[in-house]
Amino acid sequence: MDTLTATPTIEPGAKADRPVAVYCKGITKTYGSGQSAVRALRGVDVDVRTGELMMLVGPSGCGKTTLISIIAGVLDRDEGECTVLGKDFKVLGPSGTTQFRATNVGFVFQAFNLIPTLTLAENVAVPLLINRVRRADAIEQACEMLKKVGLGDRTKDIPTRLSGGQQQRVAISRALVHKPKLLVCDEPTSALDHVTGQKVMELLRSVAAGNDLSLVVVTHDARIFEFADRIAEMDDGRIVSMTTGKGHQHSSFDASHAK
């Protein structure tokens, strides 16, 4: 990895020739007010290209979660510019942003957040159902997606019967089933052992490469840095360094290895 300056610039290995999917400039965010105010972001500039896997790293409280929340459209920024796939959430408004997320953003959570009483297929179908796809079609597409991640034979299982790695693959299926343009992942490997974490990242890497999908991954896990195209290191509400990773060297994923 090569360390870059704090200013986000696109290196050749970072797919600089691709269109910008996420563009943020001068983003600030403060929680609370008065003496108890906490400045979570102090003017962040960052961009993510189509098909790029960007990792946000840094110590706890540095602003990673706030930044990913703003990029995903689940938190409003105070100041600065931010467009995602050419749209500014402040212009879209709350209901427009909700609709935008439903259509264009996929989420992978640290705790998976799979609904334990639903089957894997139903869990994966949720984003399609939110987008008003007919139930039967949604379940069919969900089963197809589960097949792609090597869980095609367990579509009627419930999440609690799966290992952590398998659950995260289900969560990734859910994040991708509606073919979003942006995938935001919050600590996707922190609940997994090293080998499983590697396989999950290989899976994410391969879908990003194959679908012109932009990924923003928040992580503490240094063992997966190698999957990033670029790594933005944050501290005290700012991006303090930008490094290129080796993500582009990873080949496409073979789901059978992840079992």
């Binding site: 909700t98 997320r101 439903a102 989420f107 705790a111 957040n113």
Partner: peptide, 17 residues
Amino acid sequence: NLRYFAALKAMGASTGT
């Protein structure tokens, strides 16, 4: 089930839904 409702909300479930 709050975290699941939050996840649904994040995934784009509208207020009406």
